[in-house]
Amino acid sequence: MSNKPIESEISSYVGKLLRDNFGKGPSSVYVSIKKPFITIHVRDFLAPMEKILVNQSEQERVEQTRDMLMRELLPEMKATINVTADIHLQEMYYDWSLSNRSGIIIGVMHQEDHVSHTDEYEEKAEVHEEINHVSKQAEKAPEKIESFYINDRTLLIIRKGILVPIEKELIRSGFEQKLKLVKRHLEKRLINTASFEQILGLPVGDAFVDWDFNQDLSYVVLILKPNQK
Rank of each mutant, 00 (worst) to 15 (best):
N3L: 05
K4R: 12
E7Q: 14
E7F: 04
S8E: 11
S8L: 07
S11E: 07
V14M: 08
V14K: 02
G15W: 03
K16V: 11
R19T: 02
D20H: 06
S28Y: 02
S28R: 10
V29A: 05
V29C: 09
V29H: 02
Y30A: 01
K34P: 15
K35R: 12
K35H: 15
F37D: 12
F37T: 15
T39P: 04
V42G: 07
V42I: 04
R43N: 11
A47T: 03
K51C: 03
I52R: 12
V54M: 08
N55G: 14
N55H: 01
Q59E: 13
R61E: 09
V62G: 03
T65D: 07
T65V: 10
R66W: 00
R66F: 01
D67A: 14
D67F: 08
D67I: 15
D67E: 11
M68V: 14
E72I: 13
E72T: 15
P75F: 04
M77F: 13
M77Y: 08
M77R: 02
T80H: 12
I81L: 06
I81A: 03
N82H: 06
V83C: 02
D86E: 09
I87F: 06
H88L: 05
L89I: 04
Q90K: 15
D95W: 04
R101Y: 01
I104E: 10
I104M: 14
I105M: 10
I105H: 02
M109I: 10
H110D: 15
Q111G: 06
E112S: 14
E112K: 13
H117G: 04
T118N: 12
D119T: 03
D119N: 09
E123T: 09
E123S: 13
A125G: 02
E126V: 01
E129G: 00
E130V: 01
I131E: 05
H133K: 07
V134G: 07
K136M: 11
A138G: 11
E139N: 11
K140N: 07
P142D: 02
S147N: 06
N151K: 07
T154N: 11
L155T: 03
L156K: 03
I158R: 08
R159I: 01
R159E: 09
G161N: 06
I162F: 11
I162Q: 09
I162P: 03
L163P: 07
P165E: 04
I166D: 06
K168W: 04
I171A: 08
I171K: 05
R172A: 14
S173T: 03
S173H: 10
G174N: 06
F175C: 08
Q177P: 00
Q177I: 15
K178H: 06
A194Y: 11
E197I: 10
E197C: 07
G201E: 04
G201K: 11
G201T: 13
L202C: 06
V204C: 09
V204Q: 07
A207E: 08
F213N: 13
D216I: 12
L222I: 01
I223V: 04
L224N: 05
K225W: 00
